[in-house]
Amino acid sequence: MEVAPDTIRIMLTGNSDQETAVNAVNQGDVFRFITKPCDKETLIVTIQAGVTQHNLLVAERVLLNRTLKGVINVLSEVLALVNPDAMDNGTIMMEHMKSLAKVLKVPNSWIFEPMVQLSQLGCVIFPQETIKNIDSGVAISEEEK
């Protein structure tokens, strides 16, 4: 499952006992369980159902990814409007993250991108003056703390 997580598993076996079927479905994430001898029509229908299931899983993942990316992009745009400095910091952090991932040879470093993009989102609620004071080492009031 780690190598090909979208694979739809269909088990064709000569062993027709119920325990084998239950274990295959529950432990092996088997989509369908068919027994031998299997007629041609049953095999075709089962394979077609597996292809349909695969297409549904892939479509769902694509939809979720697009939705997540869309939400992150909207939040980033809000951040850019409210606090451009924080947005710039996020851009710089993204460059550093990509460079570090490259040096460390981190596979799939793209999974960190949403985290970096959202890391500056908290700056939306802070007054820019307070953030500038903190960055420049100016003492801030108890209220600001």
Rank of each mutant, 00 (worst) to 15 (best):
Q48P: 08
R66A: 13
V3G: 12
L121S: 06
E113T: 07
E142S: 14
S109E: 10
Q53S: 15
I8V: 15
L56T: 00
I131Y: 00
F126M: 07
E142P: 10
N55D: 10
A139N: 15
N108D: 13
Q117R: 06
V22F: 10
L81S: 04
V82F: 00
Q128K: 05
V22E: 11
S109I: 06
I131K: 00
T67Y: 12
I92G: 02
Q18H: 11
G90A: 06
E144R: 04
A24W: 01
N23E: 12
V124A: 01
I131N: 00
A80L: 11
G50C: 04
A4Q: 15
Q117W: 00
G122R: 01
E77Y: 09
Q53V: 05
V82Q: 00
E2V: 14
Q18D: 12
A80M: 09
V45Q: 11
V103M: 08
T20Q: 07
Q120I: 03
L118E: 09
K145G: 12
V106T: 14
D135L: 14
W110V: 04
F126W: 07
M97A: 08
W110F: 10
L68E: 15
N89E: 14
E77F: 09
S141R: 00
V45H: 09
N65I: 08
L100P: 02
P107F: 02
P5A: 14
V116I: 12
T52H: 11
I72W: 03
G14F: 02
A59W: 05
P5Q: 13
